[in-house]
């Protein structure tokens, strides 16, 4: 790669890093509490987590084979 391309690529990296360094962040304790709250609030609507009654289950085994 010629010089200018290298320096341009480097400049881009620096600009990206400057941007990322300027981000506002929250503490992990805050972020973790929010993640946890979302989980717990939605837990009742999560069939893979809580299970569901067979009658609502679209993938339940069929009771009787009505073919043939």
């Amino acid at each position: 790669m010629p010089g200018p391309a290298n320096i341009v690529a480097m400049k881009k990296v620096v600009q990206q890093l400057r941007m990322e360094a300027g981000i506002n962040r929250v503490k992990v304790s805050q972020a973790a509490a929010d993640l946890q709250q979302f989980c717990l609030q939605n837990a009742q609507q999560d069939p893979l987590l809580t299970g569901m009654s067979s009658s609502n289950n679209p993938f339940r085994p069929q009771k009787v084979c009505s073919f043939l």
């Binding site: 939605n42 837990a43 999560d46 069939p47 987590l49």
Partner: peptide, 12 residues
């Protein structure tokens, strides 16, 4: 590990 996905609530 090749692939990930969450359950609806994100717990799993």
């Amino acid at each position: 590990a090749s692939s990930v996905d969450f359950s609806l609530s994100g717990r799993l």
